[in-house]
Design a protein around this nucleic acid. Structure first.
Lengths: 202, 202
DNA sequence: TAGCTATGTAAGAGCCGCTAACAATGTTAG
DNA sequence: CTAACATTGTTAGCGGCTCTTACATAGCTA
């Protein structure tokens, strides 16, 4: 690979999979430099195409960033499912594991995580994928307290947990708290919050 | 006032208080359009000066945004002090009032609030003012559980509360949760979390 | 009032987002 | 097989942005 950091080499005039390559490039740049300092031109240089090429696949710069948010939300769902493996379903342990995975995901992909939750006006797809993530928690909590996954009672019990790990995630990635050993202290915090906040009746 | 939205009229060649006027303009624009869509040129138009003028007072665009974050952090401290008035010092009620004020501040000034917590590399002043805000909570919690305001035990008891309201604030301003009546439900949530999370021994 | 410092403007370099016109390639109907 | 069309790339360029340089104006002080 001659050019540093090219996402892939171009094979000919047509690219094959430019859209996904641009998403990947955007994602890398967002993590490296933050979404404020990301430029479409940067992504084009990484993908090895002209600066006009992205507009065949995205309506504007914002939509490129949005595509990264979508990708992130899908990956977080996968991370949640993985976190549950080996846990007793609907146990407090399983529920805490989701919270730990949430913060771990944010810390591993801070730029992408921020975009997943930035308020973009009209986006049903992102909301749907977000609901799928939240659904993993709802199901475990519902089972734990003995109500259907979509019951209002389950939502009331789940929301404080989400709120807590969401706050912890942002404090961690914005460096408002310094953990001596994040891989120890974050799970501790999450387990403490789960113990305190998770009760059948809210 | 002829030009729409001018922050103040210019009196002559020299301005008098351009720095503060630019901060105010920046703040207004950040709230209206978000920090991504804020431009130095916009702020100049609002202040009625040339686009080169800000660079006599700020090193770059980022520093203008930073000045807004500083202003916000000072105002949040004031809001905390105001929230404590009429409350029994070091009561659970007082502690919950700080949390409610935290979320209310974020909802009232979402653009500024986001900047107050965006991770900017080397900024001691912002951290100091942030510590002053956190100090209000630490003092109340310390008093509640009966330890000095700077005791490690007080920090351990306060941090989960901060984490929770921080998460609630971001979920609210990013519209990830829709409250039927925010002025009712947010205090309920905060009081619930305070009850559950605030115990003497962590 | 002369000189110094502070703070404004004008002009422009360089980058970016995005568009319009065009070119190369892939696809499909006859 | 080929002509027509759809797709997806390029080149060139407009307008706007950040920030710098050189200069102009105004307030302060000796």
């Amino acid at each position: 690979m001659q050019a540093k950091d090219k996402v892939t080499a171009k094979t000919g005039y047509h690219h094959g999979d430019l859209r996904q390559q641009l998403v990947t490039a955007t994602r890398q740049l967002v993590e490296e430099k933050g979404q404020d300092n990301f430029s479409v031109s940067d992504a084009c240089r990484k993908a090895g195409v002209s600066t006009a090429a992205p507009y065949r696949h995205f309506s504007d710069r914002q939509e490129m960033l949005h595509a990264v948010a979508l990708e992130g939300m899908a990956e977080m769902k996968t991370a949640f499912d993985a976190a549950l493996e080996g846990k007793t379903p609907c146990s407090k342990d399983a529920i805490a594991a989701i919270g730990e995975a949430y913060v771990a995901f944010a810390v591993a992909h801070p730029g992408m995580f921020r975009m997943m939750f930035a308020h973009h006006d009209p986006d049903e797809t992102l909301k749907t994928r977000g609901d799928a993530c939240y659904g993993v928690l709802l199901q475990q909590v519902g089972g734990f307290i003995g109500v259907p996954a979509d019951a209002e009672e389950g939502r009331a019990a789940s929301f404080p947990l989400w709120t807590f790990v969401h706050g912890l995630a942002f404090l961690a990635i914005d460096r408002k708290v310094e953990f001596a050993d994040m891989s120890v202290q974050v799970p501790q915090m999450v387990q403490l919050a789960t113990d305190r906040l998770l009760v059948a009746k809210s």
